[in-house]
């Protein structure tokens, strides 16, 4: 197989683009996909200070690398989740990337800094581990951005993540979630802007980016995610993609273009009804936000 761009030997095939790429042209392709995403969705403005949520996995490290290459002012925040050795190893990958490139990485450790870990939080709150983890990440990344003067939080959600979440939301017609499933959530009401610049890249591409760019990342799966519903949706979508390349892209971008506007008014109405959490001041629908309730129960 030849590289579509330079006609040299290809090292990766991207079937939904009906193309192969050599190493250098693939890295260029990934940067261009991210640059186009940022431009099309008006994600970042000149001078924005960007805080990237870094897990030590392929997506966040690829995103960090690409945003730095594109000249954005971006620092990393690693959140230690207290998931045994997995968290320690993941943190090591994030630290190694930052140290090798002289990038700034801030670490918040749930057990040390907040007095609980995800396994405990999940158990006492009777939430699925990924739900407790996601809730904690959303809260703490926003809080860190607000406290430290960042304009934007960028996350490594890729096309596969977004297509799988959309698949789940459509299966259940979760119209409130569908109204908020956007690649950019604007700032306001105590939240900084949130952006997902990797939505044009599949996770096979972000993993390939790391391998070809020489970025070591956490390959092992989080032990708490094993068997979750989201992985089942990804399996189903990959089976479809194998038969019909481009299906995931068409599903997600078709939703954004044709269906998303139908659901955004409901999500906007919910935003109007938010009040300040009595404990931390974060916007919430109740008196105390879900994160403060989780943390309080986990610390008992």
């Amino acid at each position: 197989m030849k590289c579509r761009r330079c006609r040299g030997p290809a090292v990766i095939e991207v079937r939904r683009h009906n193309a192969g790429f050599c190493r250098d042209c693939f890295l260029h392709h990934c940067r261009e996909q991210v640059r186009k995403t940022i431009e099309d969705f008006d994600m970042l403005q000149p001078g924005d200070r960007v805080l990237i949520a870094v897990s030590g996995g392929k997506d966040s490290l690829a995103l960090w690398d690409i945003l730095r290459d594109l000249g954005h002012d971006v620092d990393g925040l690693y959140l230690g989740l207290g998931i045994d050795d997995y968290s320690d190893e993941s943190g090591n990958y994030a630290r190694a990337y930052a140290d090798a490139r002289g990038a700034k990485l801030v670490k918040v450790d749930l057990p040390t800094d907040l007095g609980f870990d995800i396994p405990t939080g999940s158990r006492v709150a009777r939430r699925a581990p990924c739900s407790a983890c996601g809730l904690s990440k959303r809260h703490l990344f926003n809080q860190a951005a607000v406290d430290n003067g960042y304009d934007v939080v960028a996350t490594g959600h890729n096309l596969d993540d977004e297509a799988a979440v959309l698949f789940g939301n459509v299966l259940r017609w979760s119209t409130d979630y569908l109204g908020r499933q956007l690649p950019v959530l604007p700032a306001g009401n105590g939240f900084v802007r949130k952006v997902k610049p990797l939505v044009r890249l599949g996770e096979r591409e972000t993993a390939a980016y790391c391998v070809l760019a020489g970025i070591d990342y956490q390959v092992e799966e989080c032990p708490m995610a094993a068997g979750n519903r989201h992985l089942g949706y990804k399996d189903a979508l990959n089976a479809i993609e194998d038969q019909s390349p481009g299906s995931k892209h068409a599903f997600y971008f078709g939703f954004l273009e044709k269906a998303s506007p139908l659901f955004t008014p409901e999500a906007a109405r919910e935003q109007e009804n938010l009040q300040r959490c009595a404990q931390c001041g974060t916007p919430t629908t109740g008196e105390v936000c879900a994160f403060c309730r989780l943390a309080e129960r986990a610390r008992r």
Binding site: K58, C130, C133, L135, V165, A207, V219, E221, N228, D235
Partner: peptide, 10 residues
């Protein structure tokens, strides 16, 4: 043969 599917999205 390296898997690329990660499943921690809440």
């Amino acid at each position: 043969i390296r898997p690329v599917v990660s499943g921690g999205v809440a």
